[in-house]
Amino acid sequence: MPRSRNMARFLVPALLFLFLLPFLWSFFPTRSQAPQDHDPARPANFGVGFDLAPTYGTAAVSYPNGTVRSIIKIDGDASYSEMMARLSLYSSQHLHRPYNYAEGVADLPRRLLRDMRMLLGLPASGDVYTLSKMIKKLHTAAELLIGQPVASAEASIPDFACALYGEDIHEAFNYLGLNFYQFRNWDSYDFMYSSNGAHANYDPHVCSNFTEPDHCWKYTPNPGDPLAGVPWLLLVSYGYTYLESSAYLAVYPIVQTPAPFNSTLGYDALQDALNEEEYWERFRQYISSSMGPYLRNVTRLVLTGDAAHIPKFRHVLRDVTDSIWEHELEVFDSEPVFAAARGGAILTMKEIWHRNHPGDDTNMVQEL
């Protein structure tokens, strides 16, 4: 009996310590809480961007002289596509870091489980593992093309992935031993939506040639109206499984919260439609109704998505825009599949340049 009591005296505290260990560990800095820069002795001379699209992933690299190269498009497996579809549903949303007031206590059981898995060297969750598999493939392809180790990168996610959070992206990078380049240092779980990268790929106000920084555009706000002259965009993303269309003011970050989308108007749905004209009529109505009160202000059209090359899609979209605006929209559509990854690479190169050249006040991108 005394022996059993002695064992209990040690066993209960040990179990309690193991249970609380992940919670205690969360108070110590990790890569997702304290991002690390490149080794100062070997500053990066390129920026890498990944885009985690609904059914595939892409990678691109940007160099200081303005050269941007698309690296690879990798189709996701069934688990990846299922995950992205599920995390685009509002019903999949849950508490997550960073927390609002008092949310941390309610989310403690989930965080304890994730932290325990990470302490054991496992991915924080099944979704993090699925993300890490895609990121690993993109990372391997990037290193092969660049010919150098890629220690850091940026990754964007679909605008409508409302239940895919910054903590998932950061923990996938941590699991792979990669550093996530974030642009808002005050947000420990910063991430970027795909439309931000897509517009950065085309935006003439984003400096891409850092060998001639004097030629980079410098933004000077108008004292009376700091948004004067900032264009409005119509962002249309057309994929095989979705259609997204929204109007935004072109101030970074353009997309800050999840955007609505339609999962019944992707190109695959057309193949199953009994009436093709009825499909395109619903398409027209969706595009026309997606701009809200900002319809007349739009001057630019940005196209993305793996089905954006379909001639019929472009023809019908042109009919819609011509019927709405008397002026012709400036169209950016040369890299619909790789646009987000290319823009992410450009923004990462911009961030690397600033970190390696402190004191350079060149405003590489329009930020307010």
Results as ranks from 00 to 15, higher is better:
218 K>T: 15
256 Q>K: 15
277 E>D: 03
272 D>E: 10
221 P>Y: 15
239 G>L: 08
276 E>L: 06
284 R>F: 00
283 F>E: 00
228 A>P: 13
209 N>E: 01
224 G>N: 11
287 I>V: 12
286 Y>N: 00
206 V>H: 03
293 P>Y: 14
275 N>K: 12
286 Y>G: 02
251 V>N: 07
203 D>E: 13
270 L>N: 04
212 E>G: 07
196 N>P: 06
210 F>M: 00
241 T>M: 01
232 W>I: 08
226 P>L: 08
273 A>W: 00
264 T>E: 00
207 C>F: 14
208 S>F: 04
297 N>G: 07
276 E>R: 03
294 Y>H: 15
206 V>G: 00
265 L>R: 06
200 A>Y: 09
267 Y>I: 12
255 V>M: 07
235 L>F: 13
215 H>N: 09
240 Y>G: 03
301 L>D: 05
231 P>S: 00
226 P>M: 10
197 G>D: 09
258 P>V: 14
295 L>K: 11
225 D>M: 13
223 P>S: 14
275 N>S: 10
275 N>Q: 07
281 E>L: 10
250 A>G: 04
205 H>T: 12
275 N>H: 10
275 N>E: 06
292 G>S: 09
246 S>V: 11
297 N>C: 13
210 F>I: 01
222 N>K: 14
247 A>M: 06
269 A>Y: 03
203 D>W: 05
251 V>S: 05
228 A>W: 13
292 G>F: 12
198 A>K: 08
235 L>R: 06
243 L>Q: 14
224 G>F: 02
297 N>P: 05
285 Q>V: 11
300 R>M: 07
224 G>D: 02
265 L>I: 01
209 N>I: 11
258 P>Q: 10
262 N>P: 02
282 R>K: 01
254 I>M: 03
208 S>A: 12
264 T>D: 00
301 L>G: 08
